[in-house]
C-alpha cells in the first residue's frame, strides 16, 4: 500500500476508536476494550479489503463479514458508519430504545450487518455456512469472521473449524483477536486457549501470525489469505485490549464498561491528538 493509503487507514482507525468511545459513552454501557483492540482490523476490512457497496448493503455478490465476537459491535458500527452505511452522528444512539444500533449486531436493523451475532461461537459457524453456500452458488465473494481469543473456548468454534477444513472453504478467512484478556481476567488464567496457531494448523488451517495494529502486516496477511487455495485461512493477531485509550489498555475491567463523562473527555482528547499526529505525517 502507498504511504498515503496507509495514512488514510491510520486516520480512519483513530476515527473508528472515537466512534467506539462515542457509542459506549452514549450508551452508558457496551464493550470498548475488545472493540478498540480490533480497530485496525475493522478499518482494514471496511476501508480496503472488502468488496461492499454502502448504497446497496444487500448486494448479493458482496463480501460478507460476521462479527462472531458480537459484543464488539461498537467497533463494527463505527467502521460501517465511516464507510458510509449510516450516519456517524447516530453512533451515540447505541443501545438506546428505538435505535437501530443494538447492543449486539442485528442484521435486520443495521445496514451493512451481514449476520446477527452475540452468542459466542455461533458467528463462525454462520460464516462457514455462508462460505459453503457461496461455493455451491458459484459466487466469488469472500467471507470474513472475527473471533475473540476467549470466544474460542466455545466448543462450537472447533466444530466450525473442522467443517471449514472438511469442505475446503478457502473463501473463508477467520481472524482471531488475541488481546489476551476476557471478562474474568487473562485468557490463560481463565481457560488457556494457547497455543492458538498450532491448534488452527492441526485443524487444517493455513495460518498467519501478525501484529493486529500494523496495517502492513494486515495487508500481507489478507493477501496471503486470498492466495491460499484448498484450505481455510486464519489470521491470529496479537493486539492490545483497549488500544489507543491510555487508561483502558490491557485492563480486563474495560471489557464491558462505558467511560463516564470525565473518562470520555480524556479518551477523546487522546484520540484527537493521535489523529492530529497521523494527519501531520
Amino acid at each position: 500500500m502507498t504511504a498515503s493509503e496507509k495514512k488514510q487507514l491510520m486516520a480512519m482507525a483513530c476515527k473508528v476508536r472515537m466512534g467506539i468511545i462515542e457509542g459506549t459513552h452514549g450508551a452508558k454501557a457496551g464493550h470498548p476494550g475488545g472493540s478498540l483492540s480490533a480497530a485496525e482490523l475493522f478499518t482494514y476490512l471496511y476501508g480496503k479489503e472488502m468488496r461492499v457497496d454502502p448504497k446497496n448493503p444487500k448486494w448479493e455478490d458482496r463480501d460478507r463479514f460476521v462479527l462472531s465476537k458480537g459484543h464488539t459491535a461498537p467497533g463494527l458500527y463505527a467502521a460501517l458508519a465511516l464507510r458510509g452505511f449510516f450516519p456517524v452522528e447516530d453512533l451515540p444512539t447505541l443501545r438506546h430504545i428505538g435505535s437501530y444500533l443494538q447492543g449486539h449486531p442485528n442484521m435486520n436493523e443495521t445496514p451493512g450487518v451481514d449476520m446477527s451475532t452475540g452468542s459466542l461461537g455461533q458467528g463462525v459457524s454462520a460464516a462457514a455456512g455462508m462460505a459453503l453456500a457461496a461455493k455451491y452458488q458459484g459466487r466469488d465473494c469472500r467471507v470474513y469472521t472475527l473471533l475473540g481469543d476467549g470466544e474460542i473456548q466455545e466448543g462450537e468454534v472447533w466444530e466450525a473449524f473442522m467443517f471449514a477444513h472438511h469442505y475446503k472453504l478457502d473463501n473463508l478467512c477467520v481472524i482471531i483477536d488475541n488481546n489476551g484478556l476476557q471478562i474474568d481476567g487473562p485468557v490463560d488464567k481463565v481457560m488457556s486457549p494457547y497455543p492458538i496457531p498450532d491448534k488452527l494448523k492441526a485443524f487444517g488451517f493455513a495460518v498467519a501470525e501478525i501484529d493486529g495494529h500494523d496495517f502492513d502486516q494486515l495487508e500481507a496477511a489478507f493477501a496471503q489469505a486470498k492466495q491460499t487455495k484448498g484450505v481455510p485461512f486464519a489470521i491470529v493477531m496479537k493486539t492490545t485490549k483497549g488500544k489507543g485509550v491510555s487508561y483502558m489498555e490491557n485492563q480486563a475491567g474495560w471489557h464491558g464498561k462505558a467511560p463516564n463523562d470525565e473518562e470520555y473527555k480524556i479518551a477523546m482528547d487522546e484520540l484527537t491528538a493521535q489523529l492530529a499526529e497521523v494527519e501531520a505525517m
Binding site: 458467528g123 459457524s125 454462520a126 455456512g129 459453503l132 457461496a134 452458488q137
Partner: peptide, 10 residues
C-alpha cells in the same frame, strides 16, 4: 448456525 449462514445467502 451454518444452515443459518447459508440461508443469508438466499
Amino acid at each position: 448456525a451454518a444452515a443459518a449462514g447459508a440461508a443469508t445467502m438466499g
